[in-house]
Write a protein that binds this DNA or RNA. Structure first.
Length: 191
DNA sequence: CCCTGATTCGC
DNA sequence: GCGAATCAGG
């Protein structure tokens, strides 16, 4: 395989969307993540905000400005105690593939993992990472993608987190934090 | 062990 | 230019 125009374009697109090199490689096919990374570097696009963001003390040129919607500490303090986030997700995205709606049923919400009292930090963390969620559909879930449901299954605003799972667990780090409550805080109720 | 990107260097 | 091997990190 060679880096045709189309492939490079897809590479740029996905990289811009924050997809990992391995994901891009998978999508492209015929290349390894190393190839992708190598190409990315040669193309000059490099830095992004992912797991590892080494702050180089080296002034780099950024010919490809990525329109990142930076959010300040508390953009929308939604004090959702239990459910993940049934809030309307009407955000403008550069290249958001239109997911067709799934689960037309009008069922009540399925039993979602939740607790009545989760540490505010954990919640904040979740709200933070859900912005970066891959927003996968049910079929796109793998053993390695976070299976935390977000939104209302009866609407289009429903997807699965999809971020890399914590090895051995069904959720990503952030969602593990709210999914598995040691039920310690609620237990010691002296009543 | 799973994963991530970064860099090197023979091709 | 390419990308496997390697490095460095979470």
């Amino acid at each position: 395989m060679s880096w045709t125009d189309e492939r490079v374009e897809l590479l740029k697109k996905m990289w811009g969307e924050g997809q990992s090199a391995s994901q891009i490689a998978k999508e492209l096919g015929g290349v390894t993540r190393n190839a992708v990374i190598g190409k990315v570097h040669r193309l000059g696009l490099s830095n992004r905000a992912t797991g590892a963001a080494p702050a180089k003390s080296e002034p780099k040129e950024k010919p490809a400005p990525a329109p990142k919607a930076e959010a300040k500490p508390k953009p929308a303090p939604k004090t959702e105690p239990a459910r993940p986030a049934p809030a309307p997700t009407a955000e403008a995205k550069p290249a958001a593939p239109a997911r067709r709606q799934i689960i037309p049923a009008g069922q009540p919400l399925p039993p979602q993992p939740s607790a009545n009292e989760i540490s505010p930090e954990a919640l904040a963390k979740v709200n933070e990472i859900e912005k970066k969620a891959k927003k996968l559909t049910l079929m796109e879930l793998t053993e390695k993608t976070c299976k935390w449901p977000v939104g209302d299954p009866a609407t289009e605003d429903f997807w699965f987190c999809g971020l890399p799972v914590e090895p051995g667990k069904p959720y990503c780090e952030a969602h593990v934090g709210v999914a598995f409550q040691p039920m310690s805080s609620r237990r010691d109720r002296r009543r």
